[in-house]
Structure formats: structure tokens, C-alpha cells
Write a protein that binds this DNA or RNA. Structure first.
Lengths: 200, 200
DNA sequence: TCCTACGGAATGACCGTTCATTCCCTTATA
DNA sequence: TATAAGGGAATGAACGGTCATTCCGTAGGA
């Protein structure tokens, strides 16, 4: 929930807000929640400690706001250029490739989301995602359709998601941490391998 | 590193030590590191707060000790009844199935390890694992052999591990949290799917 | 009596949050 | 234009609480 604030439009206030967000994103991504106390976020953003509370109710509010925005950007990226009427494999490869490309270009966003998922809210968030999955997002639809057409193995959505997205996120982390070196050819191979896991 | 202690052998002291370990394991697994302060661990173990420091140098020492032991148990379980001279697929299915069965029987151990991996030490530990991978554990050997025989896709070990173990651990967590319900048939299907991801 | 294990209050560091104060920009007035 | 007043934005020292760790008095066995 945003805190009501006099100047929402693109003026100095918005700039300051963005500075806080960026500082928090970086610190949490690089040091974890432990390594991102409010005082440090404020210092990195170049504002006073109290100023943060003019823009966000409390730390939870700040963290959740960042998470929501980062997640939305993930979906946007996967939907950009999505071949809506192409065959299932093409659509899936598009999603996987777009996701991996984005994650390795925005390592802070990946690390932040991972930190978030492994925290008290993380479980609640996943529960909501899985059980509240009545809303028809395009990716869930694609998976459902592929199961119905007997292209995918007849498994629950949660399992199919783990088979496909789990390894992709893992290798992005390994790339960011310098354990492996991803390039376009390798990304294609790994996405292909994840496809193989899903295929009937 | 254990702290030197007069009575190491199976007497009352060892019992008390185990109580501390069990309490810490449960609290960290269920509440995360934040929710497992030393005072709470002591209370749950039924000992004084200071007593913990007679058995472990500090909290880090305690946590690392538990992690090391839990991880060793994972390997033990995967190696129990390992069909060393069977075909690659049989050996891999054995490992995957044994791991999943163990993890869903010991949810605390899985949750603890996940908490550990997402913490400051987590990255260091993984770095050590990947770059210090000169030691020939049986599982790495199996993967190397399968690549050499062109049974697996020609990918780095870290990637193959992510493709195989990543989804397996994910679905165990989902099972523990009640999001899905694993049974023997389903485990077999999922392990089979992970095999498909690796297969050339 | 000596020595070791133990408990739990005490300690000091640190964290999120608050709030009295200051700063600065806008507006009103002459 | 010059000046004063008003008010929202920003600040950072201070507060209350929590944490890991230490310290010291006590109990019990040799």
C-alpha cells in the first residue's frame, strides 16, 4: 500500500522515492534482509532514516512494494513478443528464453526475489499463488492447454512449473554468481531440456 | 568445530547436546533463522541459554554443524541400496526416489537445508561445492559417466544437477507445505520427468 | 574441598520506528 | 520587488525491544 503523499507526479519527491527503492533493492539483493537495515538503506539512498517513512508505512510495506513491482516486470518481459498463436513449444521457449535473458541482465531483481521467497512472507505468497490460481494468467493457460492436448505429461500445474521454471532460475543464479557462463546457445539448450521434462 | 568437552561419549552430556541440536533444527526449519534466537533454542531444549556455549562456540558453529550432519544423512540415504553396477537410468532413479522419500519423511531437514542455502553462508557453500568439485563423489561420477557415454546432454555438471535435483527438491517442499500430495506413483513420474530433461 | 557442568540474569550491540525540530518552497501582502 | 508567514518535507537523535554472548553464583560428584 502506498502512503498518501502530496507530490506523486514526476517531481523531486518521486525521485527520492526511487532512490529509496533502488537502495533497498540493491542491499537486500546483495546482503539479504539481515544486511539491509533501514538506516543503511537511508544512507545509501542519501536521505534521512525518517524520510523513508514518509513514502512507506514500514519496512514490510517497502519490501512488498518492491517485490510486487519486480514480479510484474518479470511477467511483462515474458509477455513481450509472446507468439500467442504459435505452437506450444514455440510459446514455451519464448517464455523461458525471455525470462532467462531478463534475469541475467537484472541480477539484483533475481536475487531480491529469491530473498523474498525465502522469508516469512515467501510461503504465504506461494500459498496464495497456488490456491488462488483461479485468475487466468496466460502462462497457466498455456500449461493447461498443453496438458489437455496431451503434449505435456498429465501432472499438476505446480509440478510442471517446478520442472520448467525451477532449473531456469537455478542456472541464472549460477550465472550471476559466476559459477557458470550462459550464452544464447546454452540458454537454448537448457530451455530445450526443460521442455523435454514437460513433454509427454 | 566441536568445542572440547569433558564428556564426549554417550552419557548425559551427549543427550543434552542432542536436545540442543534437535531444538535448533526444528526452530530454524519452522521459523527460519529469524525465528530461532538462542534463548528460544535453549528453552525448547530445556537447558539454560549459557549451556549451549558449552557445546558450541557460537550460533554459526551450531548451525554449520547441523547442516553438515543433515547433508551427510542425505548422501547416506541416496547411497543406501545404490545399484552400483546397474544401468545409468536405474542408478539415477534410485538416487532421485531415495532422496524424495527421505525429504518428505524428514521435512525439518529439508526446510533447514533450504534456510541454510538462502543465507550468507549459502553462497559460500555452493561456491565451494562447485569449484572444489575435485573430490569424486559417486553422484558426480555417475553424471560424468552418463555425459561421456552420450546418454546425457553435453552440459556442465552444475546445470545437470539443477535440472535433476532442482525440481525434486521443489516438489518436496510443495508436498511438505501441503500444496501437492506426493505418492509413490507420482514420485516415479516426476523422477522420470527429470530423467527426460537430462537425456540426450 | 576442589572441580566441572549448569542456569539465567546481565551486558552491550543493533534494529525498526518515532517525533520534536529544522529546512525550504510557496504564497500573501504592501 | 522585497519581505514575512505558513506549511509540508526532511532530518537524525532518541526510544523500546531483541539478539548473541558473557559472567558469575550454585549444585553435585569425586
Amino acid at each position: 500500500m502506498d502512503k498518501t503523499h502530496k507530490c506523486d507526479k514526476s517531481d523531486k519527491c518521486a525521485e527520492k522515492r526511487d532512490l529509496i527503492i533502488q537502495a533497498a533493492l540493491e542491499l537486500v539483493a546483495e546482503q539479504g534482509f539481515h544486511g539491509a537495515p533501514m538506516a543503511m538503506i537511508a544512507e545509501k539512498a542519501g536521505v534521512g532514516a525518517g524520510t523513508i517513512y514518509r513514502y512507506f508505512e514500514n519496512k514490510d510495506d517497502l519490501i512488498r512494494w518492491i517485490y510486487k513491482n519486480v514480479e510484474e516486470r518479470f511477467v511483462e518481459v515474458m509477455m513481450q513478443g509472446y507468439p500467442e498463436h504459435g505452437p506450444v513449444r514455440e510459446r514455451l521457449v519464448h517464455i523461458g528464453t525471455a525470462l532467462v535473458r531478463h534475469l541475467i541482465n537484472e541480477p539484483l531483481q533475481l536475487r531480491f526475489v529469491e530473498q523474498f521467497h525465502n522469508s516469512p512472507y515467501g510461503v504465504d505468497h506461494r500459498r496464495e499463488k497456488i490456491f488462488g490460481q483461479q485468475k487466468k494468467d496466460i502462462i497457466s493457460e498455456l500449461f493447461h492447454e498443453a496438458v489437455a492436448q496431451q503434449i505435456f505429461k498429465p501432472l499438476e500445474l505446480a509440478i510442471l512449473f517446478s520442472l520448467f521454471f525451477g532449473p531456469l532460475v537455478d542456472i541464472c543464479r549460477d550465472h550471476i554468481l559466476g559459477f557458470i557462463k550462459l550464452d544464447d546457445a546454452l540458454i537454448e539448450q537448457v530451455v530445450g531440456a526443460c521442455w523435454d521434462a514437460l513433454r509427454r
